[in-house]
Design a protein around this nucleic acid. Sequence first.
DNA 1: GCGTGATCATGA
DNA 2: TCATGATCACGC
Length: 222
Amino acid sequence: MKPTPTSEAELLERALSISGYTFAELAAEANIAVPDNLKKDKGWVGQLLEWHLGASAGSKPQPDFVELGIELKSIPISYQGKPLETTFVSVAPLIGVHGLKWAQSHVKHKLAKVLWIPVEGEREIPLGERRVGSPLLWTPSADEEAQLQQDWEELMEMIVLGQVEQITARHGEVLQLRPKAANSRALTEAYGANGKPIMTLPRGFYLRTQFTHQILQRHFGQ
DNA sequence: GCGTGATCATGA
DNA sequence: TCATGATCACGC
């Protein structure tokens, strides 16, 4: 693990310095083995980038760069530069959320400042040959934040009303709620009808690819 | 089980 | 072809 950058400029500089390199090259420097594919190593690319950028590892619910208040997100893109996957934001709170406001939400805080690192994601490209793209430090525009807030409020209202199991990935224009669990047998507490506790699948908030594509386009064009 | 890092794989 | 629902690994 590299030392943690002490300024935004230093972090950006370091992100720029790894752009253009292949995963194999970056893995060699980090002394990490390159898996054949990501089937059983879904977080491998993210962890490779964390190592090179000096992000604080671990499963702590705080930004990757605490001092800088910056979240690191790798984003796999197609040959056309379009995101191939949705972007996980955070676990959704399903209980104790009465009176929870957007301003206090984990989603707002996590997305306040994000360092996006596009990476080649086409599965036909051998993992070691995929390259890291140019970084983008992003803060939501007023419009983007308004969209996020609207979706978040709609989804959280359903959760509070005990309708979490009626929520599908089709809800939300830019932010969606989907399972985030080891498997479909995992359970966590939530509100059911009439406020009675129920056990349900843990959920997470995800950004739709259409939304992240716009973010990349706004910066890189095309 | 929770939260971190996400992508897989199948049905529409 | 593509998005939804399911899944994988790890530290604690």
